[in-house]
Design a protein around this nucleic acid. Structure first.
Lengths: 349, 349
DNA sequence: CTTTTCAATGTGTCCGCACACAAAGGTAGA
DNA sequence: TCTACCTTTGTGTGCGGACACATTGAAAAG
C-alpha cells in the first residue's frame, strides 16, 4: 500500500549520496561517523526493505555468479532423498533468474566412508555456499569446521549438528514425529491389541540418528501413557530379499495379538508389501513420507497413514533461504526452522 | 544453470528489434506475419521465461499501480476468515515491491443482504482485479457477470461458483474433508460406540455450501463402509448462549453411547468447551481449521484433531496468482487449485 | 509524381539497486 | 607552499524488460 522507501530517498533525507547509503546498508566500510549517524537516524524513523527485484537485477550486472555445492545422500527415484532433491531443483529453477551454478555431490547414506570421501572433495572445492544433508554427524562436523575456516556459509537439510555454525537448518522435529506416530497407532488400533514398532536391519551400519530419535519418542509416549498397551519391537530387512518377508512372517506369528505396525523409516512400503503378501488383514500400518512406494501402498489400502516430513519443502526452503542470505547478507529469522509435519491418509494424499 | 534467454537475444536471433519481440510476447498487435513467424521460430527452439525481477522493476517505471478489491466475510480475530485475511495480507506485504493498492470490503457471512450490498459496491467500483470469498453462490454469480462484462478479472477463495469465469480458484475439496473427518472418527473411536456429527444451528440462515458438502461426504463414508457404526446427527448453537450448552447436554444424555463427535464447521471449540463443561470425558472430538479457539482446545486436550484447510495459504496463493496473472497475462496452470488438506493433532499443531 | 496515411518497426528512457570509478577533502612530509 | 597520499563522498553505468515515441516504408489518395 504505502510507497516503499528507496535508497535514493534515504540519501536525500540524510543529506548524503546514494553511494554512501549503499555502503552503510552493506556495511562495506569507508563511511564517516557523521554520515553513518545521519543515515541511521533515517533508518530508525522509517524502515527500509530491499526491493528483491531490483536487487536481483542489479546483481546480474555485476557478472558474479553464485556457486552452490549440494551434498546429500544419493537415492532411488521417488525415495526420500530424491524428494529432497526435487525440492532443491524446484527452487533452483524458480530462482533461475539469478545466475546460479550448482553441483550435486552424492554420497551413500549407508557408508560413512563414502560420505567422508565426498565431503573431502567438497571441503577443497571453491564455492559460494554449501547445502548439506546431515546423515553422518561426525563427518559433517569435520566438514563444517573446514568451511567455517574458509568462511563458506552452509545450510543443513534434514537434521542439525551440534557445534557447527550453519546459516540455516531445515528439518522437522523427530521427537514430534515419533510421538505422533505413537499417538496415531494408539488411537487407530483397538485397545486390546498389541502394537509393533519395526526398525530397519542393515548389515554393518547403525541406526540413523533420526530413526533413533523417533523410536525413543515412540517409546516415551507409551511409557507416559496410561493405556497399558504392549509394544513389540522388531526388525525388518530393507534389502529386497525373500528373507525379509519370512522374517516378518515369523515375527507376526510369534506376536499374534499385533493390531498395528509402526515403521520408523520411510521404507514402510516394504513392510506393507510383506504383510499383505502374507495375507494378513486388519493390521494398521503407519510409516513416514510420501515416497513412491509408500504412496502406492496408501492407494492400495495396505498402508493406513504416513507422517510426512515434506522433504521437498525442506529442500526448497534450503535453497531459498541460502540465496536470500547470499544476496542480502542479513541472516533473517527464517533461517532456522522446524518445519510443520503433515499426516497423510488415503483421502488427502 | 543455463543462461536464461533474454528479449534482446530473441530479437537478435529473429533479426528484429526488441520492441517487436515485446509486442509479440504481450500480443499487443501491429506485427507483420513475417516477423511473427521469425520470432515464433526462435521461441520454438528455445524456451523463453519472463524474468520476474526485471518485469517487476520495469512495471514500476510505467507508473501504473494495481488496484485490488478484496471482498470476504468479516470475522473475529483468529476465526476462519481472519486467517484467510492474514494470508492475503502476508502476500500483499511480500509483493509490496510492486506498487499495489488494495481495499477490503467485508460482508456478514450470515446475511445474504449484506453480501448483496457489498457486492453492489464492488461491482460499480473501478479496479484492476477482485478477490472474492465465495459464501453466497447467487450473489457471487451475479457480481461475476458484471465483472465479466467489464473485463475485470477475479479469483475465488474457499469455493467455486458454477457458471462464472474466474482466473483462479483456491479451495480445498470439501468432499475429501468430509470423508477424512469420517475416516478419522471411525478409526479413532472404539468400534462399539456411536458417532455424532454436529451441525451449526443458526436462526434464519441455511447451512453453508461447504458444510453441506462435508456432511454429505461424511454420511457417504459410513454408508459405503461396512463398519455398521451408528451415526447420530445433532445441532449446536454457534451463539454464545447458555442454551447452547444445555442443548448439547440433552443431546449427549439421549445418546449415551456416543464415542466421538465430528463438527463440520470451524467452531468446534464451542462444542469441545460445552462437552468438557459437562464433565464428559473420553469423547473424541474432531473439527476444522486451526482457529484460535480450536488451537486452545487442542492444546487443552479437549479437541483431539483438526482438519486444516490452510485458510491463510488459500489467501496467499490467491494474491500471488492474481498478481502473476495481471503482470504476465499468462493464465498459468497454478490458477485453479485444490489445495492439500492437513490433519493436526496436539503434536504437530 | 507528390502528399497523406497508417501499419510495422526501431529507439530511447527509466525502474532501484550494486558497484566501479572519479572527485573532493584532509593530513603529513618535503 | 606544494605534492603525495589516504579517506570519504559523489557520479555514472548497466542489469532486462515495458512502453512512449520516433522512424520507416509502402500503399492509397490527390
Amino acid at each position: 500500500m504505502e510507497q516503499q522507501l528507496t535508497i535514493k530517498q534515504i540519501a536525500q533525507l540524510a543529506g548524503v549520496s546514494v553511494g554512501t547509503v549503499d555502503r552503510v546498508l552493506h556495511n562495506r566500510g569507508k563511511v564517516s561517523d557523521k554520515a553513518l549517524a545521519a543515515i541511521q537516524a533515517v533508518l530508525d524513523t522509517q524502515s527500509y526493505k530491499y526491493n528483491i527485484h531490483t536487487s536481483a537485477v542489479a546483481f546480474k550486472k555485476t557478472g558474479k555468479s553464485l556457486h552452490l555445492l549440494i551434498s546429500i545422500p544419493s537415492s532411488e527415484k521417488g525415495e526420500y532423498w530424491d524428494l529432497v532433491k526435487s525440492g532443491l531443483d524446484r527452487a533452483l529453477r524458480e530462482y533461475g533468474d539469478i545466475s546460479i551454478n550448482y553441483e550435486y555431490r552424492f554420497f551413500d547414506q549407508f557408508s560413512s566412508l563414502s560420505c567422508h570421501e565426498v565431503f573431502e572433495a567438497v571441503a577443497s572445492q571453491s564455492c559460494s555456499a554449501v547445502i548439506l544433508g546431515t546423515t553422518f554427524i561426525e563427518e559433517t562436523r569435520e566438514l563444517c569446521c573446514r568451511l567455517d575456516e574458509r568462511g563458506v556459509p552452509y545450510v543443513f537439510v534434514d537434521g542439525s549438528v551440534p557445534g557447527t555454525h550453519p546459516v540455516g537448518t531445515f528439518m522437522v522435529d523427530q521427537s514430534v514425529c515419533g510421538r505422533l506416530l505413537a499417538r496415531l497407532m494408539d488411537g487407530l488400533t483397538p485397545a486390546d491389541t498389541d502394537i509393533a514398532v519395526l526398525l530397519p536391519r542393515r548389515i554393518g551400519t547403525q541406526m540413523s540418528n533420526n530413526s533413533a530419535l523417533r523410536l525413543q519418542a515412540f517409546r516415551d509416549f507409551f511409557a507416559e501413557n496410561r493405556s497399558g498397551r504392549v509394544i513389540q519391537e522388531g526388525f525388518f530387512s530393507v534389502a529386497n530379499s525373500p528373507d525379509g518377508a519370512s522374517e516378518l512372517d515369523s515375527f507376526l506369528e510369534s506376536n499374534p495379538r499385533i493390531g498395528g505396525i509402526a515403521v520408523v523409516i520411510s521404507a514402510g512400503y516394504r513392510v506393507a508389501d510383506a504383510v499383505s503378501a502374507a495375507g494378513r488383514k486388519g493390521i494398521v500400518i503407519g510409516g513416514f513420507d510420501i515416497t513412491e512406494g509408500n504412496a502406492r501402498c496408501v492407494r492400495a489400502g495396505t498402508i493406513d497413514f504416513l507422517i510426512n516430513q515434506h522433504p521437498d519443502r525442506q529442500g526448497f526452503y534450503a535453497v531459498e533461504s541460502l540465496l536470500h542470505y547470499l544476496l542480502y547478507g542479513a541472516p533473517d529469522k527464517n533461517m532456522r526452522q522446524l518445519l510443520p509435519i503433515d499426516i497423510v491418509f488415503l483421502e488427502n494424499l
